[in-house]
Nucleic acid binder design. Sequence first.
DNA 1: TCGAAGTAAGACTGATTTAGTCCTAATTTA
DNA 2: TAAATTAGGACTAAATCAGTCTTACTTCGA
Lengths: 150, 150
Amino acid sequence: MKVSKKAYYGLRAAVSLADADGPVSARELAERERIPEEFLEKILQKLRRSGIVESKKGVEGGYALAEQSVSVWDILRALDGPVRTFTPPLGKGTLPCDFPSHCRTNDVLRRLEEEIEKTLSGVTISRRSERNQESGMKNEEKAVLSSPDS
Amino acid sequence: MKVSKKAYYGLRAAVSLADADGPVSARELAERERIPEEFLEKILQKLRRSGIVESKKGVEGGYALAEQSVSVWDILRALDGPVRTFTPPLGKGTLPCDFPSHCRTNDVLRRLEEEIEKTLSGVTISRRSERNQESGMKNEEKAVLSSPDS
DNA sequence: TCGAAGTAAGACTGATTTAGTCCTAATTTA
DNA sequence: TAAATTAGGACTAAATCAGTCTTACTTCGA
């Protein structure tokens, strides 16, 4: 049970992008974060297809966060695929319970999935510019990963 | 991010053992749960070395839960190894933060680990005989995976 | 005391996944 | 148009997963 290197790199890249001003090229980002460049490019492309970052080609191009704020959950799901704690490919609703132990085991694992999702969705990466503009009301218990405004 | 087949089988085997009366042989257990026998044996041996089940050789031998109650967390850790969400082998205390994004990323992942541990530790598999004898006081919010006393 | 029913443990294997690399476009801007 | 950049597919070495095979060793009952 682990987070892949791909996701770990992706997470760090996103945090780095959140702290940056304009678009950052893959090369630059790779250097900043000490991530193999070609590999990072693949990661960024996946994040782009998931709508998490946006890219601009050409001379002054690069990558930037697409939304004001992304959750860690979104990034992990985009890169590592869906969290599937139980191996048989079961949709949310239908759990075939051939044997008594299956149902109960699957039940726990599903509960775990929900817990993981809840935890990870609560942690977000926000762009500096947009920080603290989000929640209109009182300061929600929402952790932010990117660098604090100091 | 997933639970291995090994762990999934192990979980089901443990649930099945919890519901059984005496020791159950690997062969019997494999048949009940539709798990490849030889593979299950490996799994049970790992669980034994971790002190989760105990074994008895010989004619009426087999495997049984060692403790009255085991948490899902214990089983998963025994079979899948430690949950290591971040790839660099970092101990609990020391996080080398070469770059700013690392610390913050590692922080989240560590928080995730704790959350997963908390969730999974709260779900236990208990032997029928020992059910409801554990918590002396009020009925704690403790989920039990094995079959309910009916 | 022998044989059958068990567990114990290590070596081996095929398939899949991970973590990349390599190469060839396609775009954009100066 | 040249340089800087992303886009995407094919490829690969190494690790991990999911088992299997083989060869013990142990216990109990007849």
